[in-house]
Nucleic acid binder design. Structure first.
Lengths: 136, 136
DNA sequence: TATGCACCCTGTAGCAACTACAGGGTCAAG
DNA sequence: CTTGACCCTGTAGTTGCTACAGGGTGCATA
């Protein structure tokens, strides 16, 4: 498989594939006589793993650990669970933060009744944190 | 006010203050004989506005527009409202996305029952998008 | 045979919004 | 007169890509 095919097969930008190789997330594939990269099924599934994990918001370093784990099938599964649980906790915290933020923005946006900027409640609210109801 | 005082007064990193000056978000202040930056009350309130807006997740470019608006008090307030409303919509979308992601992660994490990586359901789920219940 | 076009290569620079030095100058206290 | 806290400029690093520039390869068509 050439890089363009792998790109289409996994929905990954070609530049991104080369980037993953450069940072050591994907192993360097064999080359054809013309120096084109030549991928196999192993590369495809590894790249799918990486992309799916990225979609789920794992960082590259987390993915590196998860890949190390799956490269050595005798290792304990607990670490994969720990990484995923930690990530889940981070996502939950992010959601909670954004919810506070949404409430604050809703309050701010609701205050605009038109008019000129001098009297703008939106701009006033942005300038003065003390109008806020919660920490963010 | 020297830069260290402004930093403490607004809870902003000194490097960040200089960065904002460099990108034209804060006007360059007067200098003392020793070439130290010397800030006034106007700088402090402008910086507070910027920091508060950043905490609410506005981008630098959005903040630039909001500042332009508040620098010209005769302008129409509607644009501030438009920027804030758009931002609110983005926050709401982000929350919805993260909620899907949280659900998927919860399902994945719940599948771990210990054991070795070869049988790990977490790693399996990460490798195969088809286990997912919704798009993310 | 030429030539057009899609594809591939390397290497480097850019994005957002900072943060972190390195290598220097200033100023007040002890 | 030296110590330490503060300030200065300029540049490079962070994360996870993306976008060139400037070239080479391979196949079909005129």
């Amino acid at each position: 498989m050439k890089i363009g095919e792998l790109s289409r097969a996994t929905g990954t930008n070609i530049e991104t594939i080369r980037y993953y190789e450069r940072i050591g997330l994907l192993p360097a594939p064999d080359r054809t006589a013309a120096n084109y990269r030549s991928y196999g099924e192993g590369h495809r599934s590894r790249l799918s793993f990486v992309r799916h994990s990225r979609e789920l918001g794992f960082t590259i370093e987390e993915i590196r650990s998860l890949l190390d784990l799956s490269d050595d099938p005798s290792r304990d599964c607990g670490e994969a669970d720990r990484i995923a649980s930690l990530h889940l906790a981070q996502v939950e915290e992010k959601i909670a933060q954004l919810a506070l933020l949404r409430d604050e923005l809703t309050r701010i946006v609701g205050r605009c009744r038109g008019g000129i900027a001098a009297d703008c409640r939106v701009i006033e609210a942005l300038g003065d944190h003390s109008h806020c109801e919660s920490a963010h």
